[in-house]
Design a protein around this nucleic acid. Sequence first.
RNA 1: GUGACUGUAGCUCAGUAGGUAGAGCCCCGGAUUGUGAUUCCGGUCGUCGUGGGUUCGAGUCCCAUCAGUCACCCCA
Length: 425
Amino acid sequence: MSGKIQAIRGMHDILPEDTPRWQHLEALTRSLLDTYGYQEIRLPIVEKTELFQRSIGELTDIVAKEMYSFEDRNGDSLTLRPEGTAGCVRAGLEHGLFHNQVRKLWYMGPMFRHERPQKGRQRQFHQIGVEAFGLPGPDIDAEMILMCARLWQRLGLANLRLEINSLGTPESRAAYRKVLVDYFSAHQDQLDKDSLTRLENNPLRILDSKNPDMRPLIDDAPEFSGYIDNESVEHFQSLCEYLDRQQLNYVINSRLVRGLDYYGRTVFEWITDDLGAQGTVCAGGRYDGLVEHFAGQPTPAIGFAMGLERLIGLMESSTNRLPDSDPHAYLIIAGDEFRAAGLALAESLREQLPWLRLVTHLGGGSLKNQFKKADKSGARLALVLGADEAASQEVSIKSLRDQAEQERIGQNSLAVHLAARLQAV
RNA sequence: GUGACUGUAGCUCAGUAGGUAGAGCCCCGGAUUGUGAUUCCGGUCGUCGUGGGUUCGAGUCCCAUCAGUCACCCCA
């Protein structure tokens, strides 16, 4: 019996105080995706380890050291999903969803990465992922980005910066990678420790180094613009034109690489400076080769994921109000002998007013105590049923939020009265 | 994985040069035996994160461990 049981490190409970904000975020996103023609897909949280190894990339941090992997009873290696795209592609292939057709899908749920927790970074976190399959052109790239912008607007989030870049085709990127490796290898003595390991794993990431001492070396490095293929350039230019036409602000960040191996061509990130070091709130890009990589037909694809904890963090400082979730009314029962009548009255009201948020006081107690609970619940009105009311088939109604006079209403006209009174406010 | 700081009632925190814990909020009761939110009075609440060690004695010092926070790294 020593020690209390605690949640796993980096895995947090989302408490009743916070769930209204989550529900609001989820509901707004759902309805927006619906209006853009996306369909929900629900996916397992556990997949074969191999799925992630083969899609995300063996050398990425996610696969190399952050996966929650374990052995199934039959010896298979399974993994708690660290991201959603791989599972979505797997499911789509398994059920033939991509066969000669366009698919626009979304999913929502927890992801798991064994990282050191810090602000905006947990071991279990939540994403909404959005994927579009079968569309090769830059129009879908633009629409996805514009859809994000619309979501931020509806959520009341400002101060989000859009950064975009093109990674080109795998071939052009490989050519550039080789040039970069040659360049940095020739100056190995000037590389810091992190950059030396990146030279092995992901040389493009060296360009992203935050170490000011590396600045001169990086500034002199060869630019990708000399190696990117023409088609990718055209694709990117069209995307920029579409965004310009909608007057959406963005910055082209030629250093923007994405962490996962499957990205190519368009990549984008929505970034905030209000959340500390983990400022990326939403990010994605094209992954035209991934479906084919899993033995499917060549299928162009693009997708992005939003980090819900990070968005919630921004919503907390937003002035946008959440939908009201306090009870409309609180039923006070004065006298234990009226409990049955109270329950009956409440059920009758629910029958007549399905939208009514009504809390019935359970467990008895003094009238004073029940009024305290009514006030604390946030309810607008207190309904009182006691000996006097029962005798005349009435209910007393007292406003808890203003000075309106308390009144007595016949029980059979109560629903009509409440409907008028609550909807007038 | 590396580093810094932190861990005392449900919550926010105090705790002086080491001498076996305190405040506010919350909750409950009363001042009005059918009326809340204000006011006044009273009350409950802790193995001081956990495990060792030093000491006559540790919330206070040391070590370990767990967790939180922030940064590096990485990423949503």
